[in-house]
Design a protein around this nucleic acid. Structure first.
Length: 183
DNA sequence: TACTGGATTCACT
DNA sequence: GTGAATCCAGTAA
């Protein structure tokens, strides 16, 4: 399998969000395909809106892993992008491929579609924690080309920005994929 | 130093 | 459909 080049992470977050669909994540012996993503850049509701020690990585790097804790209980996996500008792509759902037994154990469920169908769920299933925050892609978490997703199979949704009349962020998912999140 | 609230999930009704 | 769990980054003082 061919590694995804870091060069892909120097462009716009929206482009990257779309590009990442169908790519394969390998981490700690687990393999899973990305089926749902969300792009963040100028949205007031996102960490990308302001430079802080936590979000600094989104300004200063591209092609890095950005993991943070939400609601005190769940981790969210992001990739930084947009060289020279703020931006990140949140991974919202995965299709599990290998390492399912451990995923079931961690998630405490026997339903396969409940393993990685949400940002918090997939981090729990793959044991992704802040331990890999700010590491480079391919350093600990690896990313490979896996499946080409035709344009017509990609669904894009928008959300109106909180204070700006911008349609941000852009959420992308693979149509008819049973592993996408419900929300 | 203290307070506030969130890029979520799950149990319960 | 609603609310609780839970903790730390960000902010104000």
């Amino acid at each position: 399998m061919k590694k995804v080049s870091i060069n892909h992470f120097s462009g716009d977050a929206v482009d990257l969000a779309k590009f990442l669909l169908g790519k394969l994540i390998e981490y700690k012996g687990h393999k899973a395909m990305i089926v749902e993503t969300e792009a963040y850049k100028d949205d007031q509701a996102s960490h990308a809106n302001k430079i802080t020690p936590r979000s600094e990585i989104m300004y200063s790097t591209h092609g890095h892993v950005y993991v943070y804790l939400i609601y005190g209980m769940y981790h969210c996996l992001n990739f930084t992008t947009n060289k020279g500008e703020r931006g990140a792509v949140l991974i919202r759902a995965l299709e599990p491929l290998e390492g399912l037994e451990e995923m079931h154990k961690r998630r405490k469920t026997d339903k396969i579609h409940n393993l990685c169908s949400g940002p918090g769920k997939l981090c729990q299933a793959l044991n992704i924690t802040k331990e890999i925050n700010s590491t480079k892609i391919h350093d600990k978490l690896k990313l490979y080309h896996y499946k080409e997703i035709p344009e017509e199979d990609i669904h894009a949704t928008t959300r109106i920005g909180i204070t700006k009349a911008l349609e941000l962020p852009w959420r992308f998912y693979i149509k008819k994929n049973k592993f996408i999140s419900k929300s």
